[in-house]
Design a protein around this nucleic acid. Structure first.
Lengths: 224, 224
DNA sequence: GGCGCCGCAACGTTGCTGCAATCCTGCTCG
DNA sequence: CGAGCAGGATTGCAGCAACGTTGCGGCGCC
């Protein structure tokens, strides 16, 4: 992980650099807005820590420029303690979080982690098949970050298949997880759901296929 | 924000519930340790307020069990005034703070906020979706710097959705965070709140939409 | 007493879902 | 090797449950 610290106090920068280094993070240091823009243009950063009082202007003015360049980067603003309206202004300018000085390094770290977690890169309990990501916790499927909004039954089918990805799922097992035990079915509704699911998966380029095994059940796997 | 009060005196519980309600917080009430454990198992709370003298034991015995279940939750212990060693014992058992009875509600509130702020792991302090900024600390939503003046229930809906932005929130989860668990609902009031919220969000150009997933729940996301 | 929030219910609307009819595909057996 | 068949795929349709919207009345709060 590589962070950019925009801060004119050298002491502070050095201290933070040392602390973050212990957590395998790289800290680039920019003492002014100009330096910051140059650094952003030349390197790829995963997050920005921004002081407000800088020699060549208010740190906040950097935010729109950052967003224009790379919108997704988390920005944490350092504010003076207790300055509530400063805080509000920072957030409205598009900062993702703020931290009052003085602060504990651990807290900064925790917030960085929290922000990183928010970006969809690192997902908790998920299955990946092809371009498809199924989030069992959030009970939703997405393809390339775009959430598929699937009706309940189709979602249940996909969930059951994703749970056992690459392995065949008995037809009866599937029926059980889509319908209750009590809730019987007397038609090929399940097949119908599979059919509709297939269409949606191929339309969205999920890169998966639901393979059917005659007389046994279905199987979810990457296509090709 | 949703808190659990473990306290056998009903008067006290009612008074606190009313007071916290004015600050847009949901208070669940558990009169015994057993009730408390049941509530914790079934619901997601952001903090616990714990009395020591309970019908079925010392409140402190709850703390290790809480930590085992969900470690990050702040716990505030209510103690009798002046009992110093009680206080010490509470902190040693893993409480995060204590408060001597009788106390001012404002003080309790301040301590809750302080604790929430101190445990940065649980959540980032703000969420940004589209032009909408939700400040979990200040408990308010704003669009382009203009604060949205939302009634209590609508704010709770938006908060719950913003907490899990971009992910589907089960209908039941939403109901729980908007209403307490004793506080039942038997109509489509939730839908009504969502409807009104939608109107306000679109009128103010928040750039977000509350997408509904039939049979599952809702989902807050930027509108295209 | 005015105002606004809230639960509630009525009613309109949507779109999921079970069903069945029809077509398709792979297997079996003579 | 080809006909027959069983299981699977697809799709239109209608019923209905879930959702959206709105107005009303009660209640608490200033």
């Amino acid at each position: 992980m590589r962070l950019l610290l925009v801060e004119d106090e050298l002491e502070m920068a050095a201290a933070l650099g040392a602390a973050l280094g212990r957590y395998d993070m790289i800290l680039d240091h920019a003492p002014t807005l100009d330096h910051a823009m140059a650094a952003l243009a030349n390197h790829v950063h995963d997050g920005i820590i921004l002081d407000r009082q800088l020699p060549d202007g208010d740190g906040l003015s950097l935010i729109p420029r950052v967003r224009a360049l790379k919108s997704g980067i988390p920005v944490i603003v350092l504010t003076a303690r207790g300055a509530v309206d400063e805080r509000v202004r920072g957030l409205d300018m598009g900062a993702d979080d703020y931290l009052a000085k003085p602060f504990a390094v651990e807290e900064l770290l925790a917030r960085i982690r929290a922000l990183m977690r928010r970006s969809p890169d690192i997902a908790p309990i998920t299955a990946r098949i092809g371009n498809l990501v199924f989030d069992f916790d959030g009970r939703q499927a997405s393809v390339n970050g775009r959430i598929l909004d699937l009706p309940r039954r189709e979602l249940l089918v996909l969930e059951a298949l994703a749970r056992r990805q690459g392995r065949t799922v008995q037809r009866s097992t599937l029926e059980e997880s889509v319908y209750g035990y009590d809730d019987e079915i007397q038609s090929n509704s399940l097949d119908a759901h599979v059919s509709r699911l297939r269409r949606k998966l191929s339309e969205t380029g999920a890169g998966v296929e639901i393979h059917s095994i005659r007389g046994v059940g279905y199987l979810l796997r990457p296509s090709l």
